[in-house]
């Protein structure tokens, strides 16, 4: 009696309809369309022509595609390696109650307020080898001619640097909030046991931040698959293909070369890699059964 009454009160399938419809129209249908387009030749004009698996065969011969996957992974790794320790340190520091920390943190968070395009354009101007900061300060980091974005190796590091500058504040915010959640009693008992600040960090703070590290890493890794506009504006994938990540390769094939069929192959590839990566992360990190780490609290 009660259960049936409850069931009557529970939202029916109809309630899920708007969301499901949205997902169908903007999620499933485009993916299906892209899979179809990957089997055609189409330049955006006229009607797509069915060519079977030709585009997929072309993928095997496209050295740039493999290269761009490698660049994507390298950039992800670089960003993760720089961002995680940096934002954790700033976040834990900013979690302290001191007034000066609050003021400085506010300044650190400023990049969060800027749009990606604005950040990329500002850095593009700063990295100009003749008229930017790169001209004046390049010598200090061993690049007297300011050639940051034009050198194949430095270009990738520069891109990683700009992306880091943009996203560290966001991850700092996550770490700051998480650190403030750690109960004081843990630190008090650690202090009673004779643990100094450094020991407290490694024995209390770090274990308590485990889930935060995972969450922040997931965001970095998944986000890195979509780094696009910063790179487009900073280097356009260049010089040559030195900073051409997979999304940019897809864009160049589709919207510069107007080979929509082959660009769709790359889009499907991107969907597959993204799905694979998120399944992998969820499985290996135990993200899906994340629980409290605070024994007895």
């Amino acid at each position: 009696m009660t259960t049936s009454a409850d069931r009557r009160q529970r939202p029916g399938l109809a309630w899920a309809a708007p969301a499901a419809l949205f997902f169908l129209v903007f999620g499933i249908v485009p993916i299906a369309a892209v899979v179809y387009l990957s089997l055609t030749r189409w330049d955006g004009l006229g009607t797509p022509q069915w060519i079977g698996l030709n585009n997929w065969r072309a993928l095997a011969n496209d050295a740039d595609a493999l290269h761009s996957i490698r660049i994507t992974l390298l950039l992800t790794l670089l960003c993760w390696m720089i961002q995680t320790p940096l934002s954790m340190m700033i976040g834990v520091w900013a979690a302290g109650p001191q007034r000066n920390r609050a003021i400085l943190s506010t300044l650190f968070f400023l990049p969060l307020l800027l749009s990606t395009a604005a950040i990329a354009l500002v850095w593009l101007a700063l990295l100009d080898p003749n008229f930017g900061l790169a001209h004046n300060l390049g010598g200090l980091v061993g690049v007297p001619d300011g050639n940051f974005l034009g050198d194949p190796h430095r270009a990738l590091l520069s891109v990683a640097f700009v992306i880091t500058w943009q996203f560290v504040p966001f991850h700092t915010l996550i770490y700051q909030a998480a650190t403030r959640q750690i109960p004081h009693t843990l630190y008090e008992s650690a202090a009673l046991d004779g643990a100094a600040t450094v020991r407290q960090f490694f024995s209390v703070t770090l274990p308590q931040l485990r889930n935060t590290v995972i969450a922040s890493s997931v965001l970095i890794v998944v986000g890195s698959l979509t780094y696009f506009e910063s790179i487009l504006l900073l280097t356009n994938g260049g010089p040559g293909t030195a900073t051409r990540v997979l999304p940019l390769h897809m864009y160049i094939k589709g919207f510069v070369g107007f080979d929509m069929g082959y660009a769709s192959v790359l889009a499907v590839l991107l969907v597959l890699i993204g799905t694979l990566l998120s399944v992998l992360i969820v499985r290996t990190t135990g993200y899906h059964r994340m629980g409290s780490q605070r024994e007895g609290l």
Binding site: L127, N147, G150
Partner: peptide, 8 residues
């Protein structure tokens, strides 16, 4: 020059 690839 040495930095032409950075010039716009």
């Amino acid at each position: 020059g040495t930095n032409f690839a950075s010039i716009n």
